[in-house]
Amino acid sequence: MKTNELTYGVLAEFSNPADLMHGAEKMRDEGFKHFDCHSPFPIHGMDQAMGIKRSVLGYIVFVFGLIGAVCGFALQAWVHTKAYPLTFAGKPYFSWQAFIIVTFGLMVLAGAFAAVLGLFHLSKLPKFFDGLFYSKRFGKFSDDGFFISVDSKDLKFHDEETSRFLESIGGTNIEVIRGE
């Protein structure tokens, strides 16, 4: 039986946001890279405590917003000067003033899609299966649980040693996550 099982990582529970943040700082200082903190709500300052950089999402949205605006403007200019030139309300074919609104709208639309798809992509979601779901306790994260998980692919990972380390930094209910 045991031979079929994979070790996904170790999970430790912490009692409150402050302990979780202390724990994260110690994990960072110990040199762990593939670990994560799970909480029911975002905790400010956690990125720094974990030693990870600011999200790059802003740049993605900027680029897509710009593409949306340029394409939107080009479409309207092309429609009214080349594809289907109609005289209307005495305005010139190329009435850039009248194109601003749709250009702006398409910029926001492209930017919003980039933001939403980008944030899920960067978070590696959707991911319907994850080793953590084998844990019985893990479901508490969405209620009032605070957890640190260490992925088995971390170079420093060793199920017993890592468990002991997590315990030493204040983790409780240490659980080695195994599953098929």
């Binding site: 975002p42 990870i52 999200s55 802003g58 998980s149």
Partner: peptide, 20 residues
């Protein structure tokens, strides 16, 4: 979508929300 409340989710989520 398999949300696990991980800080590696939240950090993009928070910025994404702010951008939206």
């Amino acid at each position: 979508l398999g949300w696990r409340g991980a800080n590696r989710h939240w950090r993009h989520y928070e910025l994404g929300y702010l951008i939206l």
